[in-house]
């Protein structure tokens, strides 16, 4: 019954799309010109049935990346070994080009919020997160990428800005960075910093993947809802990111009010155009 595992397929330096259930059938029927797909690892934690069936078929046509939303990397509690074992088993089966997690925490002491909560950026947090990333990489037997999250509050105990913190985690723990340009923009507006500072603080070789998505304004705060097209200012920031980091696999994420696949393909086309244009310009 088990098919042979696909061979490892690196993620191409092109735009990809977040794979969501409403699009499974259309993707298989039309095999659109997307460079690659990224999935939320937890959506495939089941033992069988529809999700794995479709992922197997889509994987036979495209490279995929696994993106975790629930490991709670920054939690002060113990690592959830069961959760990690499921990621490992998926990685073994689908040979993803990237395995990524968020630089955040979701719960502690067995109680979860199931959202991406920010960390206080202290030396204590840095040591803890680095140790956790090292353990995860050791368990999975591969390098992971960590992603910056959108945040709506800052802790008074933080001693360094987020950009220094994430750069330090990558340097000390030996992981890559999944730079979410929309999250940088959202946090910059919410906390009043210059998003260019963020880009400049991230070392050139550390960014292996970029995320783009849409947000919504709720009062005076921007919320990372993944429910809208990429905002114009975020496209501008993305251009600057491409100038700094070069052509980088870029993902279009959309998780709520999911539009027709054609809308996502158009956003991906635009990301490719930015990469080609900006790279040509900078070369």
């Amino acid at each position: 019954m088990n098919c042979a595992s696909p061979k490892f397929d690196p993620i191409p330096a092109k735009a990809g799309i977040g794979l969501r259930a409403p699009h499974y059938r259309e993707i298989l029927a039309t095999l659109p010109a997307a460079g690659w797909f990224e999935v939320h690892s937890e959506n495939f934690f089941g033992d069988g049935g529809q999700p794995l069936h479709f992922l197997e078929q889509i994987r036979s046509h495209y490279p995929i990346a696994l993106h975790g939303v629930g490991l709670s990397l920054g939690s002060a509690g113990p690592l959830d070994r069961g959760h990690l074992a499921r990621i490992k088993s998926l990685a073994g089966r689908f040979q993803p080009g990237f395995v990524s997690e968020h630089l955040s925490w979701a719960g502690v002491d067995g109680r979860y919020s199931n959202c991406l909560l920010p960390l206080p950026y202290t030396e204590e947090s840095l040591k803890h997160v680095c140790r956790r990333v090292e353990r995860v990489q050791e368990f999975l037997g591969r390098r992971i990428l960590i992603e910056n999250v959108s945040s709506y509050l800052q802790f008074k105990q933080s001693t360094v800005p987020e950009w220094e913190f994430i750069a330090a985690v990558a340097a000390r723990a030996g992981c890559g960075i999944l730079l979410d340009v929309n999250n940088i923009y959202v946090s910059a507006v919410n906390h009043g910093f210059d998003p260019s500072l963020y880009l400049q603080a991230i070392p050139r070789g550390a960014v292996e993947e970029i995320h783009l998505a849409g947000f919504e304004a709720q009062g005076d705060i921007l919320v990372d809802t993944h429910s809208r097209p990429v905002y114009e200012d975020v496209w501008e920031l993305y251009k600057r990111a491409v100038l700094r980091f070069g052509i980088t696999p870029t993902l279009i994420e959309w998780d709520a009010d999911i539009p027709p696949l054609a809308v996502l393909l158009e956003e991906a086309w635009r990301a490719n155009a930015v990469m080609e244009g900006e790279y040509a310009f900078s070369a």
């Binding site: 509690g77 206080p120 105990q157």
Partner: peptide, 13 residues
């Protein structure tokens, strides 16, 4: 890690 744990407990509370 005492501070981080306390902060996270309080946040969840």
């Amino acid at each position: 890690m005492r501070f981080l744990r306390e902060l996270q407990r309080d946040f969840m509370e």
